[in-house]
Amino acid sequence: MGIPFIREQELKSLCQSEALSHALFSVDYLKGLVFAVASAPEIPMPEVWLPWIFRQHGQVPDTQTADKLTDLLMSLLQHQLRLMRDEQVTLDSAYVLPENAQCVQSGDLALSRWCSGVLAGHSRLETVWNNAWQKMQKKSPDAMQAAAKDLTHCLTMLSTFADLPLAYEQAKKRQNEEQFVLLLPTVFLSLQPALKTYVGLSGKLVEYLPNQFETFSQPSK
């Protein structure tokens, strides 16, 4: 089990407050989003990714609340980076697979909300990833093919758990829904290794880029 984020309750209380609950995505989604930001081959500046936390037309009611929210999210980013640096990438123990998970709507399942946040962050950072891929392809085309295959697997895993009812419907169209349900717990056990692979891929891609995020990768203890 990974080291928990010590300010998580503080983050939850603020995000679920009356002032912010309608403006922000869920805390689980935000945690997934921050995981994606921390995993990027090049970490974007806060002013780039912080606006992604809002639903459409969302806004913070006052400067004090905005500053507190920013401080908490930056602390969460530093926490994620510390775990990645120490090779302690784990799936939060709160993200479990309940029985009959394929019947639970994505918005009602914490695991799905988190995976949705990771996918949203990855999508926002696609240009960053593609820039790194292009440089890797020029220097190590053979390695790039294997890495691309691994990334596709990771994103497919995240997509499956981001919307299990949809994945189940797709399995029904392939006429293998019974196998899907039977294997789902086993597939879930593969999610954490997939997250480690995802972070590891980013680390490989960094080797082909100038190191532009030293200030982020050396959090204070």
Rank of each mutant, 00 (worst) to 15 (best):
V187R: 12
W52H: 02
K173I: 12
I6P: 07
H22W: 02
V89P: 03
L73K: 07
K149G: 00
M45R: 10
T160S: 00
A120S: 15
Q212F: 05
D62C: 13
L24H: 03
A40Q: 05
L76H: 03
L109Y: 02
L158V: 00
V89H: 10
A23G: 08
R55F: 00
D86V: 07
S13R: 14
M144A: 15
S190P: 03
F35Y: 07
N130S: 14
L50Q: 06
E18C: 05
V118Y: 02
S116V: 01
A162G: 03
A19T: 11
Y208P: 01
P210D: 13
S26H: 10
T127I: 13
L109F: 06
W129E: 11
M136R: 12
Q192H: 06
A132K: 08
V37E: 06
I53P: 03
A101E: 01
S202Q: 03
Q134Y: 08
C103S: 11
C154E: 00
T63R: 15
S220R: 13
V34L: 10
K68Y: 04
L155Q: 12
C15L: 14
E42N: 05
S202L: 11
M84W: 00
P98E: 06
P61C: 04
F216E: 04
P210Y: 06
I53H: 05
R113A: 02
K196F: 01
F213D: 14
P210Q: 02
L14A: 12
Y168P: 12
P44F: 04
T70E: 10
S112R: 04
L20W: 09
L109M: 04
L81S: 02
A38G: 07
N176I: 15
E178H: 13
V60P: 04
L20N: 06
A19D: 14
G32L: 02
L191N: 11
L76F: 04
V181W: 10
K204P: 03
S190C: 14
L91W: 05
A94F: 09
E214Q: 13
L158G: 00
A120E: 09
L73Y: 05
E169T: 15
P210V: 05
M74C: 15
F213R: 12
V27S: 08
H22Q: 14
Q170E: 14
V48N: 09
L195T: 03
L119D: 01
F216R: 05
V199T: 06
G117W: 04
G117D: 04
G117F: 09
V48Q: 14
P4D: 05
L182A: 14
S217G: 00
A120N: 13
Q218Y: 04
K196W: 02
M1C: 11
I3W: 15
P193S: 06
Q59R: 15
L209P: 02
E42L: 12
K12P: 00
L77A: 04
D67L: 12
R113D: 02
Q192D: 07
L119K: 03
S21F: 11
A132E: 09
N100A: 13
E126W: 07
E47C: 06
G107D: 11
C115V: 00
T63C: 04
D92R: 10
S93T: 13
L33K: 08
V199F: 01
A19W: 10
P46A: 06
L111K: 02
P51E: 11
L33V: 07
R7N: 09
F216W: 14
G200N: 10
